[in-house]
């Protein structure tokens, strides 16, 4: 096995093209356990952390750009990001331990394609896009188009994620993320839920996005819950609809982390709680950051 640490996106692209059995990585926090568990060793390991563009958070022209290999410990504490996307900051801060967060990245969390990935629901409710590089240049697609199933992504083998782009949220808009784990730390989400709400001046919801993690083969949006919220105040009645819709959208499995019945029920609970949290934040928040 070879290890290389390219300094530019182009260099990484040509390395990737030079060896069919190659693998890009940032934190390797999933890759190493997978290799220990029998995943075949690639012939070429491409360490993306040496590419400056992939390891920074920038904010300009109303867009937030997060390098795909940026450690989530930086995503978690970036002031601009925290102000605009508190839920994404939250979900970044829930991945593993401090040790893991200093290595794990949004790009890795997305491309590992675990149904329980913490940052995917947050990225989805913020309609994040990903810039993907290959020898043909770059293309930009919605985050929701990346994961196709547990462990599988729509990227070609010679492509990799460069960065994430998020548009600044409108006025009185905020997101939130909650997950359920049996312990307080160090677990994979049994269920996760993210929401982003926009409220009008009367605290009525004008736009809502809700996504549920770990309760289906991929992270899923909950359109029925979103519809229930849109145009309505956040009250018990709306929340009851959100709960039911969030549970209904799940197609979970029973495994070592939880039963399908549990996941379905708790998905509703988390959806309700996360909507309340997002609404609270939206109210506290004035205009766009």
């Amino acid at each position: 096995m070879r290890y290389v640490r390219p300094g530019t996106v182009d260099e990484a692209v040509s390395l990737l093209n030079s060896e069919p059995e190659s693998c890009v990585f940032a934190g390797a926090t999933d890759l190493v356990p997978q290799m220990q568990g029998g995943r075949p060793e690639p012939k070429l390991m491409i360490d993306l952390k040496g590419i400056p563009r992939l390891v920074k958070v920038s904010y300009s022209n109303g867009q937030l750009v997060v390098g795909a290999a940026t450690p989530v410990s930086i995503v978690k504490v970036d002031d601009n990001l925290k102000a605009a996307f508190p839920g994404l900051s939250e979900s970044s801060g829930l991945i593993g331990s401090d040790q893991i967060q200093n290595r794990a990245s949004l790009g890795g969390n997305l491309c590992t394609a675990s149904p329980g990935a913490d940052t995917i629901p947050s990225l989805m409710v913020n309609s994040a896009r990903v810039v993907i590089a290959s020898s043909g240049g770059t293309r930009t697609i919605p985050v929701s188009d990346v994961v196709t199933g547990p462990g599988s992504v729509s990227l070609k083998s010679n492509e990799f994620v460069v960065e994430f782009i998020l548009d600044a949220p409108p006025k009185r808009t905020a997101d939130a993320y909650l997950r359920f784990i049996p312990r307080t730390e160090m677990d994979i989400a049994v269920v996760g839920a993210a929401a982003r709400l926009t409220l009008d001046d009367a605290d009525c919801c004008t736009e809502a996005l809700v996504a549920i993690g770990a309760a289906a083969p991929t992270v899923v949006r909950a359109p029925v819950a979103e519809n229930a919220l849109r145009g309505n105040p956040i009250n018990d009645e709306t929340l009851a609809e959100v709960m039911a819709a969030a549970s209904a959208v799940c197609s979970p499995i029973s495994d070592k982390r939880g039963t399908k019945e549990y996941r379905r029920q708790v998905a509703g609970v988390l959806a309700k709680r996360v909507v309340l949290q997002a609404a609270k934040r939206a109210k506290e928040k004035g205009g766009a950051v």
């Binding site: 290890y3 640490r5 390797a28 190493v32 360490d47 450690p71 331990s97 040790q99 200093n102 290595r103």
Partner: peptide
């Protein structure tokens, strides 16, 4: 400067 698990990093890094 970053706390990490050394078991998850590759030595050449």
């Amino acid at each position: 400067g970053q706390l990490i698990c050394a078991c998850l990093a590759f030595a050449p890094e």
